[in-house]
């Protein structure tokens, strides 16, 4: 059973998650006109920057986050930004969009100059997230858990982060049982996606390095 306190916690997190989305004018640009590969790249960079800003605003609203050490806050955000971004993108790409929009978006990503060996695992991840059919609360909580990962580089007070993360894990576990009673392994499968996310983020770092070299 989810306690009243836990319900309130979920509400705060989901409200913040909904309030902090990429601004419409930035998102709209993705669906406009044809761009060259370079313009596509710049546009995706702008999107990524916007996503990080939105992520920080969301994170500030996670109960307890601002009471963590300031440098630990930065380490957590730095360590999770890319993963949180992939989660949000998966959610966007799996949403039912007006006909043709998904294709335009996919095409844009494919034409941005990102190498195929990175694109394939990325789209595979988006697909595997889509197959979970997460409810909205679960998406917001999973993102929160990603952000509150204690073993990110340079986090000093791991125990404080762990305590916050465990509070959210406990709610998510209960929520999974409630929303997916026919699938007792659902919570474990959600956590499994976090491992996939780490792998993807590792690929991403490699990809950035090769870009810098070029």
């Amino acid at each position: 059973e989810i306690t009243k306190k836990q319900q309130a916690l979920v509400k705060v997190i989901v409200d913040a998650y909904d309030r902090h989305q990429i601004p419409q004018d930035v998102a709209k640009k993705l669906l406009q006109d044809q761009y060259s590969a370079e313009e596509n790249f710049l546009l995706l960079t702008e999107m990524a920057t916007s996503q990080v800003q939105v992520l920080v605003e969301f994170t500030k609203n996670i109960p307890g986050f601002l009471s963590l050490d300031r440098e630990d806050q930065i380490a957590l955000l730095k360590g999770s930004a890319v993963e949180a971004m992939f989660l949000r993108s998966a959610q966007v790409l799996n949403k039912k969009m007006p006909s043709g929009h998904t294709e335009v978006l996919e095409e844009r990503i494919r034409k941005s100059g990102i190498s195929e060996e990175f694109i394939t695992p990325m789209f595979n991840f988006y697909k595997s997230i889509g197959e979970l059919h997460m409810v909205h609360e679960e998406q917001a909580l999973l993102t929160t858990i990603t952000i509150l990962t204690p073993d990110r580089p340079y986090v000093k007070d791991q125990l404080a982060v762990e305590r916050l993360q465990e509070t959210i894990l406990d709610v998510l576990r209960k929520m999974c049982l409630l929303h997916h009673p026919q699938d007792p392994q659902y919570f474990a499968r959600l956590l499994g996606r976090l491992t996939e996310l780490r792998t993807l983020s590792h690929y991403h770092a490699e990809m950035l390095t090769s870009w810098r070299v070029n």
Partner: peptide, 21 residues
Amino acid sequence: PASNLGLEEIIRKALMGNLEE
């Protein structure tokens, strides 16, 4: 523009300021 900043700079700026205001 913000897109010229590195990840850590974007995070620091966003943590200090409030984009909603």
